[in-house]
Design a protein around this nucleic acid. Structure first.
Lengths: 251, 251
DNA sequence: AAGAGTTTGCTCAACTTTGCGCAAGTTGGG
DNA sequence: CCCAACTTGCGCAAAGTTGAGCAAACTCTT
């Protein structure tokens, strides 16, 4: 057993079974606890795991990465929304995926599907770049590292040249009157261009987005065709959607 | 047994059976451990495997990847060309990087530089996506997985909207009359759009590209401003460049 | 707050791997 | 035929890895 293989195995064990003690790892791998300690120290300095007293755990996501913080929030809700969205997509369709973590969760469910996916979401790109089944179209733009996205006039230009059956739109929050909001102003023109490029607009907004934050208004409820949300969504806002003729799906 | 066959066999063994120790490989192939070590070192510098203490592991990458084969060819020459190109770039400039492995080698030398890099080369994107110093602009397009690139009319559209101080152009080969050729027809319109978008066109062509293959003609020598090559370049073709008023730089 | 039990950092000795110089064998050209 | 360039195998010193022992630091319970 090579030292490097052993370290890889430690990481895989931690990812599969969660935090583990030094003793358990030593028994499992058939080496002394001293060796395990040295391995853990090594992997810790590499940033691949977090050393804790008595053992180690998989690395705690970067906190200076706004994406990581958001990505960890309400994962179950977002996955539920993503599943409902994935069920709406038929093979052969062209779908447009907005930036944000919910769209990324949706992309995870599209592996192996015969689809064309258009996106400016780098997390979606990373998820699907090796999947031969998916025809993947990346919109141009300036790389915004903190948001894992591409933005700018190049993105908008590209969006004027493409067309999709469905847009899956993310949001930072929904106002009581059904208006879709966003905190990052620079993304708003991109979102509007996406809306123009799609036949149908599906808003992905788990219950935590009702009522929501965001200084910039992206669009009103009348633009939307479907809203996919969860049980915890505010009833008044839901009514605003149904009143505007939007189909509300509870995932 | 040819050294090259032996190295191929080492790679196949690693792919089939996973990580292996130096001793095991030496026994299997009937050569000394010293030879195995030299082979592993060689393959590691080519990036075809990862050397670890006690043995080697397959590099964590796609195996059926035509890119990997090309990327391993004439690495020293390409690096020499890339270094000469990197020296031409001044801080604050906007540079356009073509697809191909030579442009990727160039990108590796741009870490930490205050530059704007525009590219449709996914290897360049991967190289620079985490470097805060570099303003990175990705051109839109359809993902061509085998070539690590983005192509199509979205790419060309984006190129009409940007401008760069310098284009670093790759090629599959240069004809005797100085014409720049390419094997992949679908890339030609993209390359031509890149040429239009840049003040200065720098051709990166190590000696192995003279004389070169490629069914599609990208442009003639009169379009180029600088050619960066290596000592092994064919003298007649070099003359074709100088006759056309192109500065030839030997890296 | 004190004590028992555990974990950790450290050093030491045994072992393995590595890098390097050197000599022998092979290939291709003048 | 000889020479230069290359590859290969071997020996040795240097560096890396491993496991054990021990004092100090830490956690948990009382």
């Amino acid at each position: 057993m090579l030292p490097q293989s052993r370290r890889d195995l430690i990481l895989r064990t931690l990812r599969a079974d969660g935090p583990s003690e030094v003793r358990a790892l030593a028994d499992k791998l058939g080496v002394s606890q001293a060796t395990i300690r040295r391995d853990l120290e090594h992997l810790d300095t590499e940033g691949r795991l977090t050393r804790v007293y008595g053992g180690a755990m998989v690395v705690d996501d970067d906190h200076d990465d706004p994406w990581a913080d958001v990505a960890a929030e309400r994962v179950e809700d977002k996955d539920a929304v993503a599943r409902a969205c994935a069920d709406m997509i038929k093979d052969g369709e062209t779908v447009l995926l907005d930036i944000g973590t919910t769209a990324h969760r949706l992309a995870r469910l599209l592996h192996g599907r015969a689809l064309t996916v258009i996106t400016s979401n780098l997390a979606v790109f990373d998820e699907l770049r090796d999947d031969e089944n998916v025809e993947l179209v990346l919109l141009g733009g300036v790389v915004r590292r903190a948001y894992h996205s591409l933005v700018g006039y190049l993105t908008e230009d590209n969006l004027r040249q493409v067309h999709a059956n469905r847009l899956f739109l993310g949001t930072s929050g929904v106002r009581g009157d059904g208006a879709v909001m966003d905190t990052t102003v620079v993304e708003v023109p991109v979102k509007r261009a996406m809306i123009k490029a799609a036949d149908q607009v599906v808003l992905m907004a788990d219950g935590g987005k009702f009522p929501g934050v965001g200084m910039a208004r992206v669009c009103g409820p009348e633009i939307l065709n479907v809203v996919v949300t969860t049980a915890s969504a505010d009833p008044a806002t839901r009514r605003a959607f149904t009143d505007a003729g939007v189909e509300v799906v509870e995932a």
